[in-house]
Design a protein around this nucleic acid. Structure first.
Lengths: 155, 155
DNA sequence: GTCGGTGCAAATGCTTTGCATTGAT
DNA sequence: ATCAATGCAAAGCATTTGCACCGAC
């Protein structure tokens, strides 16, 4: 169970970015023989409303604030389903807790973390993909994904 | 306590790579008013004997195998000290467990992870440092470190 | 005799799971 | 009826901490 890369999203996104995520989720659930329940809808909506990274606990709080009553267990179970669907990805830079964010395409693999303020910016870094692919090719490997975190201070 | 970058090693390494680590550790301990105990020496030796990444538990096993009797608590406490000294660094790509490795200079920020076999290769990627510095500079930030994991399969 | 170090066991904190109940087809 | 979903509480697991004892200067 260790060493799993973040699941890359399937690509294209021919519809735009945010709106069809619920459709993507529905399809993914249906394909797995699972249901699109109110709790799962509320969780996805709440995640979309976030503008940045979040933790399971924040999500739980936000759900409560919105008046949704969803249990912690369901939150964790749904996070896993959303990850399977490629809708969110885990972005780990802290051993104590998982941090998640929406996965638009392959975005979000690169994070700029302000260690002084805790701010996090998501970067697009096409050069990095090129470097990655070159490295893999040189070894006869197929790239499956990557994750970069840059830490910085000051400003 | 979150969002801490891996502590970069102080540089230079004018002595070679492995041998003086114990001296580095000693100095770091002395500077902090701490002692270089047999347990700490055994832990460092055992880490040096590893050729790759390791987890706290593996380390504990290996210590047992070598006939050293060191408690789990001491292992964790010493890992933290070694990290402070810049001798090892945490390399996290799994939320369940911390993975550590020796930090030679700034090496080890970049890992190539075979997701099918679990093999891990440490890469040097100077281009990445350049990219990182450029990004930080463009925002008036000072780079403190970075971490890249590349996931790949096949071969 | 003062400090730090160690080991043990208990505590922590995030995440997962077992189980009884509920709801949809 | 069946099959999955939910909530709760309990369990898991890596890591940390409190505390009593030990050893070095």
């Amino acid at each position: 169970m260790a060493l799993q890369p973040t699941q890359p999203v399937s690509g294209d996104d021919e519809f735009g970015i945010i709106e069809p995520l619920c459709a993507v989720f529905r399809r993914s659930l249906k394909d797995a023989g699972l249901k699109y329940t109110p709790e799962r809808a509320q969780i996805l909506d709440t995640i979309i409303a976030f503008d940045a990274l979040f933790e399971a606990d924040q999500l739980l709080d936000e759900l409560k604030t919105k008046g949704f009553r969803v249990s912690k267990a369901t939150v964790y179970r749904t996070l896993k389903l959303l990850e399977d669907a490629g809708i969110i990805q885990r972005v780990l830079f802290d051993r104590d807790q998982s941090h998640y964010q929406l996965a638009y395409g392959n975005a979000g693999n690169t994070l700029l973390v302000r260690v002084d303020t805790g701010e996090v910016e998501t970067l697009e870094l096409p050069e990095l993909v090129a470097i990655r692919d070159k490295i893999c090719e040189a070894r006869g490997l197929k790239p499956e994904g990557h994750r970069l975190q840059i830490f910085a201070t000051g400003g």
